[in-house]
Design a protein around this nucleic acid. Structure first.
Lengths: 137, 137
DNA sequence: TCTTGAACCTCTAGTGACTAGAGGAATTAT
DNA sequence: ATAATTCCTCTAGTCACTAGAGGTTCAAGA
């Protein structure tokens, strides 16, 4: 049996975060010691690694909750799980595209600025005047 | 003189957001009508467009506050303003790189999944077992 | 066995940039 | 004059945690 601190050390997930995951229904109520402290088993270690991995990939808590629910039904088709991942991939790609537009706009603004004083600073001017932008955003 | 609603319509910034910007010190306290309602002038319109544009580029409120302060000193060198933009560009590029790593990982996980049931779903398996990942994240 | 110090417990509040809603006052149009 | 709309302030909610207060339990050494 592991304490919450042990679990934390082994997974790299902070103690308050583990409690938070329990609250959010990702971790399931742990067993308790006589003195009301949480006690975990190896399966909890795997569960937490799963959650952490999904979070690292950017999945949000409701999505992870659903994946956990799915993983409890090994006989079901895996289309639902695939869809969660695929939807997330679409969202990630949209974010990338948006950030790349920002990147180009910032590059352009910065490269145009060769003034020496705020008065003719292109950064400030570009922000003031949307007409100086390339694309729309 | 414009009401807050007029300002909102002309800039596309929602009314509560304008009040929020005032609270955050980006907008400066507006004049008031006899009945205590905010009244704006054209300069406020430009200011708000500036803020909105900076936000669209992803700059946060402290950065915008600083840019506004700088723009009030036209004789100062513009290195500070450039630095704010350049630092932000670095942050944007880091976010892009991180998201691209996620993109590839998700692509790989999804493409490997040709199972029909949860039991052998690669999405679930990959999340459970970090060893199935390509890179580290 | 006792004591000390670390780890644990619950609960509340804070993060950023808004957004939503309550309850009431001012303004504008009819 | 009245009705509809807009405005005011204030509080609380979003997301995934993080920090802290104030108190309890546990494990190791004396």
């Amino acid at each position: 049996m592991l304490s919450i601190g042990d679990l934390s050390k082994r997974t790299g997930v902070k103690v308050p975060t583990i409690r938070y995951y329990e609250q959010m229904g990702l971790m399931g109520a742990a067993e308790r010691s006589e003195g009301n402290q949480r006690r975990y088993e190896k399966t909890d270690l795997e569960r937490l690694a799963f959650i952490r991995h999904a979070r690292d990939l950017g999945l949000d808590i409701p999505a992870i909750r659903e994946l956990i629910a799915l993983s409890r039904h090994p006989e079901m088709p895996c289309a639902d799980a695939d869809k969660i991942a695929a939807d997330h991939l679409v969202a990630v790609r949209e974010k990338i595209a948006k950030l790349q537009r920002l990147e180009h706009e910032l590059e352009r603004i910065i490269s145009h600025c060769d003034g020496h004083s705020i008065e003719d600073c292109y950064v400030i001017r570009a922000l003031s005047d949307h007409g100086l932008c390339d694309g729309e955003h």
